[in-house]
Simulated assay, not measured.
Amino acid sequence: MRHQLSFPCEGAAIAATLDEAPGTTGLLIVSGGNEIRSGAHRGMALLAQRIAEAGHPVFRFDRRGIGDSEGENGGYTSSAPDIAAAIAAFRGAAAQLTRIIAFGNCDAASALLLHKPLTLDALILANPWTYESDDSGDTDEPALPPAAAIRARYLARLTDPKSLLRLLKGEIDIKKLARGLSALGRGTAPAPPDSLPARLNSALASLRCPATILLATGDRTAQAFVASCDPGAVPIERLASTSHSFAGDDAEWLAQNILKALGRESAA
């Protein structure tokens, strides 16, 4: 059964949703960008229903200043109090919980890494956001692709017979192609110590709980993460998809990986 509730966070009332289930290992969903807790195309609401039907309670919430919640929207970099308050509210609403796993996509994944709530038992990090801008927005991809995505696109074109035929017919801008090809041989410069990728690398290296990274390999945000971050020993699961939010048929792959992580923690 699904319940609507609220909890306090630094003087603001935070709107939340609990999908009840009898399990002792629960899932906390942290929304990315400025999405409300139901997610893109109700994706997170449907995911919560799927996980709860498998026996695990699920808690979702609107960050301050988003959706039905009060307060100012400070972005994912200011969400540490929201996440901490949500964990406490989840434990209060589902008294049987002994373990909580948090799932976040895009900048929600980065927020979980940067804030590293010590009361969580595991993390599931999907397509972590590595762009310096604080505005990951609600779109499926950032406006500009990273260099890694540009290189991948040109390599794909070079092996596509249709693209080669267009080149022979003079339908492709040679100067633009030459600029793209020149990027193929250039490596990625090391991230400055205070950059977001560097801080994420540091967080990954110092994790105190198990984590899994989920990547949609055709997604620009995921490609940027691969190009700029070192996950170290954190396992990565990859899906050949361009969907940043794991929409459509990809939703089942996402659910299966989350259930796998919940099962591991339940058995621990």
Results as ranks from 00 to 15, higher is better:
167 L>D: 12
209 C>V: 14
143 A>H: 08
221 T>A: 04
136 S>E: 04
84 A>R: 11
122 A>Q: 01
201 N>W: 06
4 Q>T: 11
204 L>W: 01
210 P>I: 00
213 I>T: 02
232 G>V: 02
102 A>W: 01
82 D>S: 07
162 K>D: 15
60 R>S: 09
199 R>D: 03
220 R>S: 03
30 V>I: 14
69 S>A: 06
50 R>S: 14
157 R>T: 05
149 A>L: 02
163 S>R: 06
97 L>A: 03
198 A>Y: 05
240 A>K: 07
14 I>R: 06
32 G>L: 07
118 L>C: 07
212 T>I: 08
106 C>A: 03
63 R>A: 14
31 S>K: 10
52 A>Q: 07
173 D>A: 02
126 A>Y: 01
18 L>Y: 12
234 V>A: 00
72 E>D: 13
147 A>I: 03
182 S>F: 08
237 E>F: 00
87 I>N: 04
193 P>H: 03
124 I>T: 06
179 R>G: 06
266 S>N: 11
221 T>H: 00
118 L>H: 10
82 D>P: 14
24 T>G: 15
185 G>N: 08
114 L>R: 02
53 E>L: 13
240 A>H: 07
186 R>W: 09
246 F>L: 01
2 R>G: 14
77 T>Q: 10
97 L>T: 04
178 A>G: 06
203 A>C: 05
226 V>A: 02
109 A>I: 00
248 G>T: 03
69 S>E: 10
134 D>C: 01
78 S>N: 11
199 R>W: 07
261 A>F: 08
255 A>H: 09
111 A>S: 01
5 L>Q: 12
23 G>F: 13
153 R>Y: 11
27 L>C: 09
229 C>V: 07
56 H>S: 11
46 L>H: 14
4 Q>A: 14
153 R>V: 03
149 A>M: 02
173 D>W: 08
164 L>N: 11
132 E>G: 03
57 P>R: 09
138 D>V: 11
96 Q>F: 09
156 A>M: 07
15 A>D: 11
205 A>G: 01
159 T>C: 13
4 Q>L: 14
192 P>V: 01
254 L>A: 01
239 L>I: 07
18 L>P: 13
230 D>K: 02
198 A>Q: 01
7 F>R: 05
122 A>V: 02
98 T>N: 09
256 Q>L: 10
52 A>D: 05
